[in-house]
Nucleic acid binder design. Sequence first.
DNA 1: CTCTTATTGACACATAGTCCCATTTCCACA
DNA 2: TGTGGAAATGGGACTATGTGTCAATAAGAG
Lengths: 146, 146
Amino acid sequence: MAKHPSLAAVVQRLEDRGLRVTAPRLSVLAAAAAGAEDQFSAEDIESRLPQVGRATIFRTLKLLVEMDVFCRVLLDDGNLRYRWSRRGHHHHLICDSCGAIEDFTGCDVTTLMQDLARRTGFTARGHWLEVYGRCAACHSRAAVSQ
Amino acid sequence: MAKHPSLAAVVQRLEDRGLRVTAPRLSVLAAAAAGAEDQFSAEDIESRLPQVGRATIFRTLKLLVEMDVFCRVLLDDGNLRYRWSRRGHHHHLICDSCGAIEDFTGCDVTTLMQDLARRTGFTARGHWLEVYGRCAACHSRAAVSQ
DNA sequence: CTCTTATTGACACATAGTCCCATTTCCACA
DNA sequence: TGTGGAAATGGGACTATGTGTCAATAAGAG
């Protein structure tokens, strides 16, 4: 699966919303695709685009997160990263050891929420879940080196 | 149940860790207990303690979070709050409408994690979960006003 | 080609911290 | 009781991640 959706698709979605497809917006998308990692910080984008105003970069990041082109990932140390969104409801598995981020869907938190409503009367509208641990690759790597 | 544990218990835990029980640390605890709400921001503490250095306030907050005296709560808007921890693994139910925060334990995310490990090979070490929605009190309030 | 509106860039300001370093405070031990 | 070392503090600079304002610019519609 591609790291990120085609530019054309994003452009289409901008147009559908009646938003303009401008050079700075395309630059941010390009800069986000440029990194070696599939995740990036606001600062990464800033440093790759010295010619684009800082405010514009943040505005664009915010817009693209709203449009579900990017998603935010909360790292264990409290830092925030951006990432191409796989679109729709999903969560992240963040590897402590290599830092890789995987998505996961099939989130049964819904069941949990229903349970919760029964027990406490609290109705969940949404939730934020990040999982920290060790990915399969780092497991085998550890197994080999020992 | 009390909003927060006795000061003596916290003092004890500081001593157990070989840390000093200093005036600034006690001030932060007092300031945290002073607010009307059971939650507070770093800024709340700062403004209640103009005589204590900012660096000290942040150091102390961090220390008390590590000691599980306070916990951090991630609000829906991305802002962070501090809160007396009920100690041990728990999550938060944050009411959109009145802003109240309830704790909940009996978190069956564990089951989810085991499932995850089977499916993806990812072993979870920990997770962060915040739930947003509407509390029981706000439900009944809404029912009455309609 | 021009009008309108979206968008941008610059800059100031805000929040939530961290880092460094000189000074102070505390505690233990002589 | 005095003192030396370690822990803790306060001040200030610095960082990261934003937001708000406002005048200038650019895009698309007609």
